[in-house]
Write a protein that binds this DNA or RNA. Sequence first.
DNA 1: GCTTTGATAGACT
DNA 2: GTCTATCAAAGCA
Length: 189
Amino acid sequence: MDLSLPAPELAPHLLGCVLRVGDVAVRLTEVEAYAGEHDPASHAWRGPTPRTQVMFGPAGHLYVYRSMGLHFCANIVCGPDGEAAAVLLRAGEVVDGVETARARRGGVPDVRLARGPGCLGQALGLTTADSGAPLDGSRVALAAREHVPARIRSGPRVGISRAADTPWRFWLDGDPTVSAYRRSPGATA
DNA sequence: GCTTTGATAGACT
DNA sequence: GTCTATCAAAGCA
């Protein structure tokens, strides 16, 4: 696993990998690539800010942000140092620490534990305090998948207002934990 | 210092 | 399928 790859190349390679945060681990089933300064949909497209600075740093760190006040979304920073590339983790299947995740999510069906970016962040217990945390295996670790997933699909990204037609969303076809496609209301497409 | 916007999720018609 | 809650960071005056 080479996290210094550009986001669009790395994203499909992350599918099927297991991300562990504390007691909870998820198998990634849905991700989206963001190419930083070259991507109008990225938080970092206009240059570094206090909130996005971690994306400009070296690969192998978490970037966590808050959306709509209530929801936390997790990204894995990738690309070379200085490039604001990141891969948004949109959904996953909880493979360890299910009880912990279930408690955090308030008793929803298991298939929904990490379905959707905000849900995934909540299931893993991530907050903005975890933004910038390294994937060094202490609290957060990324394990390579054992086999290449059989069916990977790609398509337009979801829920963003710019460049929504860029096919940088990747997911495992047929996986029940993948969120239903949901078009951005104001997407320019 | 103030105003606008957002990489959503869940409830409601 | 459509509508809205809710707040911090970004952007602008």
